[in-house]
Simulated scan of single mutants.
Amino acid sequence: MAHRASVVCVGSAILDTIALVDRLPGEDQRVEADQVVIAGGGNASTSAVAIARLGVDVEFSGIVGDDEAGATVLAQLEAEGVGTSLVERRAGVETSHSVVVVSRESGARAILTRPAVTPDRIPSGFDWVHVDKAGYRALAQGGRISSAVSLDDGNPVPGLDLNLIDLYVPTAIVLRERFPGQSAEDGAREALRLGTTTVVATDGAHGSFAATRDQLVHSPGLPITPLSTLGAGDVFHGALLAAIVLGKPLQEAIRFANVTAALSCRALDGRSGIPDRTEVEAALSDLP
């Protein structure tokens, strides 16, 4: 079955309740929130929103509940231009929800989440399939597919088979955890040896790097004072795929993704600060 979009993001769609506080509370402590917002979240679905905001057609595939939260999640995706024809609203399932506390002082956050339900299958007919932790479980059940596959390994995926992945996108921290005693760059080389084609690792404000069997390239982060880093990794994944679909070479693609993710940190939630392509292209001139 063919689709108008070249990318489908498979996995979690979540409703976030986010509180901004001066500092994160300790055990048995009470702090007052300066601001509380309810917004869409979830790894794969936020990546889809970033792709749509950047002007690339995208679908989201996942499972939400047949409840009010599920209706809200779908309405938010549709308002962003994300296709939702592959979303199942399942009776008896509660839509995933997270409670997020963000520190104004550092931009750090604490997250409590009810995990998303694993999708039943990976849709076919797309050039690219992007999966998060929930989406990977569906991928692993079916094995290798004909579409190119991108993986969000920011929240480490257990039982990972890199032979299923074309574009592997962990954090530098996850790379060092997966390959103890090695630098992030050496860990990337090991991931290539284990079967993936391209590794792109994010390292927060330090930027990112990309590794293939033929090259290793670095790109700095865009200097910014974040209000919140919630969703920045998900935005990076979406922007990276959008850049690839738009035909940008690898080093330009990671620069593009760095800037998009950095600009998204100016909002408390993980989506409302995501820039469009015009704003990203303008900000690229500020990146060394």
Rank of each mutant, 00 (worst) to 15 (best):
E177Y: 07
L241E: 05
S103A: 08
R121K: 14
V102Q: 04
S264M: 07
V82S: 07
P249K: 01
L15P: 00
K133G: 04
A91M: 13
E190V: 15
S98F: 12
A261K: 00
S285G: 12
G159D: 12
D153H: 11
G62T: 02
P115N: 10
A5C: 11
G11D: 03
A13T: 12
L162M: 12
L230G: 00
R189P: 03
R137Y: 10
L250C: 09
I38S: 12
R137D: 14
Q76S: 15
R89P: 01
L241N: 02
A116G: 15
V37T: 10
G11L: 05
I111G: 10
E281Q: 13
G40S: 09
P223K: 03
A52T: 03
P25H: 09
A2R: 14
S228F: 04
S124V: 14
D286V: 01
G247N: 03
T113M: 11
D28G: 11
L222R: 01
D269G: 08
R144P: 08
A138M: 07
T171S: 15
D120V: 12
V280E: 02
L230I: 12
K248E: 12
D67G: 01
Q251V: 13
G207F: 04
V87P: 05
R90E: 11
P115E: 11
G247M: 06
A283R: 12
A52K: 02
S61F: 03
V100T: 10
L216M: 09
F256I: 05
T118L: 06
S208T: 10
G143I: 09
S61P: 01
V149T: 11
A205K: 11
D186F: 07
D28Y: 08
D286E: 15
A257F: 05
A44H: 10
L162S: 10
V56K: 07
A184Q: 02
G26V: 11
R53C: 07
G92E: 09
A267N: 04
E88A: 13
F126W: 05
A188F: 04
T84M: 01
I51A: 02
T229F: 08
S285T: 15
V100N: 07
L268K: 02
P123N: 10
L194M: 13
L227K: 08
D203R: 15
E32G: 15
A44K: 06
P123I: 09
V21D: 05
G270Q: 09
V117G: 02
S146P: 09
V73D: 00
V169Q: 13
A50H: 03
A2F: 07
E105S: 14
S98C: 14
T72L: 14
T95D: 02
V245D: 00
V31R: 04
A267F: 00
T202C: 02
V36G: 03
V58I: 10
L24A: 01
V259S: 07
A110P: 06
S228H: 06
V101S: 13
T118G: 00
V245S: 02
P288H: 14
L250F: 08
V100D: 07
T197H: 13
G273T: 06
L194E: 14
A188T: 03
S183M: 03
E88H: 11
A52G: 08
A48N: 06
I51Q: 04
L151R: 00
P119I: 00
D214I: 00
A257P: 05
E281T: 14
P223S: 07
P220S: 11
V100W: 00
G107R: 06
